[in-house]
């Protein structure tokens, strides 16, 4: 999503979020999805519909549930989502305070942009802070 202005180059939730997050649909089987997610090296999966609108979220707790259940039964429906333009410093601060490992980032109409991982957000926030607090060389 293009932005402009003096702070346009600062990292935001949408630029730091991982776009390659695993996704699944509500009628999928939890056991098969959990295996696919683990093999891909993730501990979360976003439940989307055919238009990639976020329907729910599977974090580690839900992925470890009964493998015979459907995603519809296992997911956390209607998770809190965040817009791509939110400053990464605010997201990192909130995710740290709430001990939240990941947060879905969506457009205003609910379409998945990616999953913001806390360690990515905190790293980006630290890098931003170090670049903005460096003394001028002049």
């Amino acid at each position: 999503m293009p932005t402009e202005g003096t702070k346009a180059s600062r990292p935001r939730a949408g630029t730091v979020a991982r776009t390659g997050v695993p996704t699944c649909q509500v009628d999928d089987n939890l056991g098969a999805v959990s295996q696919r997610v683990r093999e891909a090296g993730w501990n979360a999966c976003v439940v989307v519909n055919r238009e990639r609108i976020v329907m729910g979220l599977l974090r580690a707790e839900q992925l470890g549930g009964d493998p015979t259940h459907s995603i519809r039964e296992a997911m956390r429906p209607g998770p809190s989502t965040f817009r791509p333009h939110v400053a990464i410093t605010e997201m990192a601060e909130y995710m740290g305070a709430h001990k939240l490992e990941n947060s879905p980032v969506t457009t205003s109409d609910g379409r998945l942009v990616g999953l913001l991982v806390r360690e990515d957000a905190e790293r980006a926030a630290r890098e931003l802070e170090s670049t903005t607090t460096q003394p001028s060389s002049k």
């Binding site: 956390r76 998770p79 809190s80 909130y94 305070a97 709430h98 001990k99 939240l100």
Partner: peptide, 12 residues
């Protein structure tokens, strides 16, 4: 529940 983390028990 907390609007950020969706937990019923949240100190912040």
């Amino acid at each position: 529940l907390c609007a950020f983390c969706e937990r019923v028990e949240c100190a912040v």
